[in-house]
Amino acid sequence: MKVKIMLTILLLSTFLNPVLASSIENMERTRASLISTMLDVNIDADKKQNQLKNFKLKLLDNERIVINDKKIIQNPDRYTINAFEEFELSFLVHSSIEKNLDITSHWFNEIGLTTSNLENTRLITK
């Protein structure tokens, strides 16, 4: 009985923790949505383009907010440090425009899935 009460209190206490959404988390959430839309094969092309366009605009705003946010720099957590160290992968919209590429090509390039790499892959069976 005592164990049940303790577990209930512990479970309830998790609900009391407020969710603090920092600007970095918002940006990463939007980026994750954009990438998952990019990789989703079940959506038809027009709808995909529309969704990508909307996510791109939203991600642009989020990236600008993160760049101009001074609070996250004061006591940076590891997510913030990683974001600023990996500019090309974190700030997709800005870095894709900088390189004159569309966002999908830019992301594939950054993770190593370039055309030449794909052409050079071979299937080896043993």
Partner: peptide
């Protein structure tokens, strides 16, 4: 991280016009 942020701000400030032309005008809204 302060240095990295300053560099990013410099890079991004150059891109503002390009962003406006490539993205915001073409998207319409």
């Amino acid at each position: 991280i302060f240095k990295k942020r300053d560099n990013i701000i410099k890079r991004v400030s150059i891109l503002d016009d390009k962003i406006f032309d490539n993205l915001l005008i073409s998207s319409g809204d």
